[in-house]
């Protein structure tokens, strides 16, 4: 602190409290709405204090779902989202740590080409190549399956760059010592690189788990079987139906259930999350 200015400090706290309120309010409203009965919205205004229907609403959503929306109960959708988020996070980490290892610790023909091919994936977000990617997945018979949900979005230039950057900072002496002790590349990778990369892996995991959980367009395209719906895309369908049949309490219960897991991961692993975000820079 440069100087003591109580008035300025007071204003800062005021600004921060206002910011926190704006950030929290939309979710607060959703939580409140999810505790009310279906008729509490008829008055034309959303209630601002909790109601008494919380247990009923959440058990309905988890167990049976909204029958009119054509979506399954939330519970299986949450499981699908979990499979997809874990698959995307772990898959991306595995394939990018392997390719970063190859690029940094070996010299071989076409090394630069490989690096640039990985770089290109940064420039081709799913949203841009929707139709042909869908066609490839359909031709491979991967529609309505977990591999179809996970594998096409698993290549990651940013994760590869992060590991490459980190490997370059590891002292060469470690490799020399390992080679003197006659450790092969795989042993070096497993016993030295992997333990050293633990924090980086944890940081990436938080970012990629959130990324995988929040996928929307891709599951929307490749799943037509409700058994493979993820919760984020399921909510959109429920919300569309809710416009004609006001079941806001149930839709908002699903919204709360859908945003809770990634938010918990981010808050519980905040230190890694901040590190991962600031270092991957994308």
């Amino acid at each position: 602190m440069v100087e003591n200015r109580p008035v300025l400090d007071f204003i800062c706290h005021l600004i921060l409290i206002a910011g926190v309120v704006v950030v929290i309010f939309p979710v607060y409203l959703a939580v409140i709405a999810s505790t009310h009965g279906p008729y509490d919205f008829m008055s034309g205004l959303v209630p601002l204090l909790p109601g008494s229907q919380a247990v009923e609403n959440y058990s309905v959503m988890l167990g049976t779902g909204i029958s009119s929306s054509g979506t399954p109960p939330v519970w299986p959708m949450l499981l699908n989202s979990l499979v997809m988020a874990l698959g995307v996070a772990i898959g991306k980490i595995v394939i990018s740590i392997l390719s970063a290892f190859a690029i940094v610790y070996f010299r071989f023909p076409f090394r630069s080409l490989a690096f640039w091919l990985i770089f290109i994936t940064l420039m081709l977000p799913v949203e841009v190549r929707i139709l042909p990617t869908y066609k490839v997945v359909a031709d491979l018979g991967m529609l309505n399956s977990y591999p179809g949900l996970i594998i096409p979005i698993i290549a990651s230039a940013t994760a590869t760059f992060l590991f490459r950057q980190f490997f370059l900072t590891i002292p060469d002496e470690l490799l020399e010592a390992a080679r003197i002790d006659s450790a092969g590349p795989l042993r070096f990778f497993w016993d030295i690189l992997l333990p050293l990369s633990r924090t980086n892996i944890a940081a990436l995991f938080v970012i990629l788990f959130v990324l995988g959980w929040n996928q929307y367009l891709w599951p929307l395209l490749v799943t037509t079987d409700p058994g493979y719906y993820t919760v984020v895309m399921g909510i959109k369908r429920m919300a569309t139906v809710a416009e004609s049949f006001p079941q806001w309490n149930l839709v908002m219960a699903a919204v709360v259930l859908a945003l809770l897991p990634p938010v918990i991961v981010v808050i519980a692993m905040q230190r890694f999350f901040v590190k991962g975000l600031v270092e991957t820079e994308k």
Partner: peptide, 10 residues
Amino acid sequence: VWPYAVAPAV
């Protein structure tokens, strides 16, 4: 910082 974890659709 937590809204980062909320899906765009949500």
